[in-house]
Simulated assay, not measured.
Amino acid sequence: MGGMARTGNRSGRGAGAKDGVTPARRPEVRLPPLVEYDGEGLEPDGDYDGVRFEGTDLAEASGPGARFMDCELRGCALDRAELVRARFIDSVLTGVRGVGTDLAGASLRDVEVLDARLGGVQLHGAVLERVLVRGGKIDYLNLRKARLKDVVFEGCVLSEPDFGEAQLVRVEFRDCVLKRADFSSVRMESVDLRTVAELDIARGVERLAGAVISPSQLMELAPAFAAQIGVRVEA
């Protein structure tokens, strides 16, 4: 499907399981007392446990395979940081910023990403489980062939996100903006789109099976659905 479907909805939040939608399980991150990071850059396969990175410049840092457990990254620069196959567990990333951060094949479990300002983040082939992305703006997010389970996008702006061939299970988009989203060949199960403030689908509208949308979104998506099955609508 090469056309574009755009719809907006500012209705109240969905009620969750009682109306047939299985809600995502949100992360419950409780950080222990942390040790301030006083090093420079990152180490490949580095092991960071209970560390706070406060305003650390990690631009172009090379830490493929690094593990971050019970960590906080606050106000860090992540431009072109190489974090391929990195693992983030029980961690919080607040106000991180950067362009071209490479997290291909990374694993995020019980992670909160708050007020991030990122562009061109590579998360293709990544695994996200119990992840909350709240606030901020992420441009050109690459989640191709990623696996998302119990993930919530809340109050954030996702500009041209690529979910191509990804698997989404119990994923909620809450009061956020999706601009020119690519859902090509995506697989969805219990995906809640009802409270998306702006739903703009560039590709893959035919792959919304397994998603829940609002009545107003259905009306606005109707022309795209009709075009997908070859129905002409004329007065």
Rank of each mutant, 00 (worst) to 15 (best):
G12F: 02
S62W: 08
P33T: 03
R117Y: 01
L103D: 07
R147M: 12
Q122V: 14
P44Y: 03
D192N: 10
E160C: 07
G8P: 05
M219L: 06
T56R: 15
A166I: 10
D19F: 10
T22M: 10
P23C: 06
A24E: 02
L42Q: 07
R67H: 03
A104E: 14
Q228F: 05
Q122A: 15
R180I: 09
C156M: 14
D175R: 11
G41W: 09
L58D: 02
V196C: 13
A77H: 04
P33K: 05
R130Y: 00
S62A: 07
T56E: 14
R13I: 06
F88K: 10
L178A: 09
S184P: 09
I213H: 05
S91E: 01
P32W: 02
L78N: 09
R203F: 11
M4G: 14
P44R: 01
G50Y: 11
V111N: 13
S159W: 15
P27K: 04
S159A: 15
V233C: 13
V21R: 15
M219H: 04
D102Q: 14
R30E: 05
A197N: 06
D182Y: 08
N142Y: 06
S11M: 10
E82Q: 10
G98L: 00
G135A: 08
Q217T: 12
L218E: 13
G95C: 07
V205Q: 14
E234C: 03
F163C: 06
V127S: 04
T22C: 04
R6L: 10
V196K: 05
D79V: 02
R109Y: 00
V191S: 11
V133G: 11
V92I: 15
V131A: 12
A197Y: 04
E165L: 00
G8Q: 12
P64K: 05
E112C: 13
T22E: 11
Q217F: 06
Y140V: 12
E112D: 14
G63W: 05
R147L: 12
A227Q: 02
G8R: 10
D90R: 12
F225M: 14
E82S: 05
G12N: 03
R10C: 12
A15P: 00
L78V: 13
G75M: 04
D57N: 15
